[in-house]
């Protein structure tokens, strides 16, 4: 299931709804993405990471966003034996600490749930048509795509055979 919305979401409620009444699910992996207050790649403080942002606005391409997310989710389901999956992505104005994206994968065993979750997040970062406009002390700035995101997404291109082989590893 995929959803694109401006409103906030409740991760616990989303998770409960996804697996309500099911007794066949053995593993659920969740990824919650938040808006960080610092720009750039630096997470440890210092001045390497850039400025502190006040807010960011996520623009997206209505229609294509839903189409691409649905295709990414379908691809994850082809590659791994998932019993349920969910992608919720917000758009509009968000402030540091706000929830921005939630990805849930459920499967009988943990390996598939973990791998499919990473795959979904890596792919949505490079294929879902969202653009971040940061609002900081020096005005507005469009966030530039990162090569590391392409690298992260690219490692899944080895093909479904390899991925399927990996997910059959003992759990």
């Amino acid at each position: 299931m995929i959803r694109v919305q401006a409103e906030d979401f409740d991760p616990a409620a989303e998770l409960d709804a996804l697996i309500a009444g099911r007794t066949d699910v053995g593993a659920v992996v969740t990824f919650l993405g938040l808006v960080r207050e610092m720009t750039g790649n630096d997470v440890g403080g210092g001045d390497a990471g850039g400025a502190r942002i006040e807010a960011m606005t996520l623009e997206h391409y209505p229609g294509m966003t839903e189409k691409q997310l649905a295709e990414i989710e379908a691809e994850a389901n082809r590659r791994w034996p998932l019993q349920a999956s969910l992608i919720v992505h917000r758009h509009g104005r968000l402030e540091p600490g706000d929830r921005i994206v939630y990805v849930v994968t459920a499967s009988p065993h943990r390996a598939a749930a973990y791998e499919a979750n990473m795959f979904l997040v890596d792919w949505l970062k490079t294929r879902a048509p969202f653009w971040k406009l940061e609002d900081g002390p020096e005005g507005e700035r469009w966030v530039e795509a990162r090569d590391s995101d392409d690298d992260a997404a690219g490692r899944w291109n080895a093909g479904p055979e390899k991925a399927a082989g990996k997910c059959r590893s003992p759990t």
Partner: peptide, 28 residues
Amino acid sequence: AVNQDFAATDAPVARGDEIAFFPPVTGG
């Protein structure tokens, strides 16, 4: 993107298509 799918520069375009231009995406 042509009709909401990513498209390369040599991809065909025709009357009636919806074609979008944008920077590399930065969602997630």
